[in-house]
Design a protein around this nucleic acid. Structure first.
Lengths: 202, 202
DNA sequence: AACAATTACAACTACCTAGTTGGAAACTGG
DNA sequence: CCAGTTTCCAACTAGGTAGTTGTAATTGTT
């Protein structure tokens, strides 16, 4: 049997993604990750360093692949609303990215510099896609993106909130999706309108 | 020295709130909570049962006091926007409630029935305040509330997202606050307009 | 003052956890 | 075929971890 280092690494990363996604950094167990990957846990320390570094690798991989799977296409308010809808759908099917994002925010909140530094490659992608609203300032566009991510990512992480506020009728997810898309459209359209008539709003 | 049971309970709850807020359920340490409260940890098991039950007590206390401190006052789109602004400000000063809410969502996500059951008293408060938009259906009003909570609570939990998307200029929090308030106002106003002219939108 | 119930706590248990080590098996270049 | 290197893993270490227990101090009640 030939040593397939890359396969071993990939198996570990996959198992680690699942474990960190469901249990977070503090709740994850190195032994469980190794067992699920069918690999000796000592490999983790050789390939990734330690638990924290493995968590970093998982986050970067998950967010990078998310940005490839759900790209921002086109420009204008409709494009932003469409992006929000696709992001919502993606997270509904697979909540890995939003869960990891919130784990990172909660467990690493103090070291604020952390994520942006590690996600430098993503930052460039954000910067290029942030121009999807012509005429809108960089800061306003960034705010709109934060709004989109907040709405789409919070939904799968806070099911209890949804149950408490909106009940649990069938087709609930569709309704929530529509509300998110409409809210994003309204916010984006308002920014676009302001861009055309800068003095119209106080 | 007289035994002051209530004081001991309060000290434990306060220390537990701080510990769970910063470290979550899996990351919190019973020994640390007891030490910070200056109380023997055995008291925790007598008064609250176990770690999970203590976490429950902390969440219920925190969310209940939040709903008292930041009430929904008045009705109409302006009232909802004002509520969002006050909620944002409160969470900016003290991120305890949003952090606990997300910890609960992440670490207890599978047992969806959990929070609504334990927050039955809060549910009634939600139901009464949900009528703050006259003419709007219960479900649409609930969706608006979810939007408000998502936007206001995600902000202090995801500082890295803000740094990545919007940089770190002075007065950044003010700008984000304005964006949230405006987005909420637009969403609420759209619902109100629909209520007056039901057939106007597809 | 004597009794039962409650509150307090130090010490303890049984188990788990991240990280290490020493050596065996498999690959690589010559 | 044969050193030298890399991959692999079982067993180990050292330090936690939630939860329990035995006992002493305090309290209200009679």
């Amino acid at each position: 049997m030939a040593w397939d280092t890359e396969r071993t690494k990939a198996l570990l990363l996959q198992a680690a993604t699942s474990e960190f996604c469901t249990r977070g950094l503090a709740g994850a167990r190195i032994d469980r990750i190794a067992a699920e990957a069918g690999v000796n846990k000592e490999r983790i320390y050789q390939y990734f360093g330690n638990k924290n570094a493995l968590f970093d690798a998982v986050i970067v991989a998950a967010l990078s692949s998310l940005m490839d799977e759900v790209p921002i296409e086109g420009s204008g308010p409709e494009a932003m609303a469409d992006y929000a809808g696709r992001l919502f759908d993606h997270h509904q099917k697979d909540a890995t990215a939003p869960r990891l994002l919130f784990w990172e925010g909660l467990e690493r909140g103090t070291e604020v510099v952390g994520l942006p530094k590690r996600m430098a490659n993503c930052a460039s992608k954000v910067n290029s896609t942030i121009a999807a609203l012509p005429g809108v300032s960089r800061e306003d566009a960034g705010d709109l993106l934060i709004t989109i991510v907040s709405l789409c990512d919070a939904a799968p992480v806070l099911p209890a909130l949804d149950g408490l506020m909106a009940g649990a009728e069938p087709g609930r997810a569709e309704r929530r999706r529509a509300a998110v898309v409409r809210t994003v459209y309204l916010a984006a359209a308002a920014l676009a309108a302001e861009a055309k008539a800068p003095a119209a709003t106080a």
